[in-house]
């Protein structure tokens, strides 16, 4: 099938912070085009006056008592950090 007319793959990949290879680009354009064509049939449904559902069982205003509890120790929280220094996550320079 053809790619979806409105899907600007480069733009959307950029929004998602993904870089696609040429091969991925070609493949995704075709596959996502098929999926979007399938999805187009949703436009046939009459949704006039219908409220959207975000959760099947809406639970609102969930409160918890404000009781201090121990959190993760710094060592445990940083255990999976790719790089760290002085109990902080180290990252490449952001501002010159």
């Amino acid at each position: 099938m053809s790619s979806a007319p409105d899907l600007n793959l480069d733009h959307v990949a950029h929004l998602a912070r993904l870089t696609l290879t040429a091969e991925e680009r070609a493949q995704f354009a075709q596959q996502l085009g098929d999926v979007l064509h399938h999805i187009e049939q949703l436009s046939k449904v009459d949704v006039t006056g219908i409220e959207p559902t975000a959760h099947a069982f809406p639970i609102v205003n969930v409160w918890a008592e404000d009781i201090p509890r121990p959190g993760l120790p710094v060592e445990a929280a940083l255990r999976n950090a790719p790089a760290q220094r002085d109990h902080m996550v180290a990252v490449p320079k952001v501002v010159d």
Partner: peptide
């Protein structure tokens, strides 16, 4: 994304209600 939210995401949430 901007311009498609209503047509896709919001509509899907309404169909979810149905």
């Amino acid at each position: 994304s901007s311009g498609y939210y209503d047509a896709f995401y919001l509509r899907a949430q309404k169909v979810r209600t149905l």
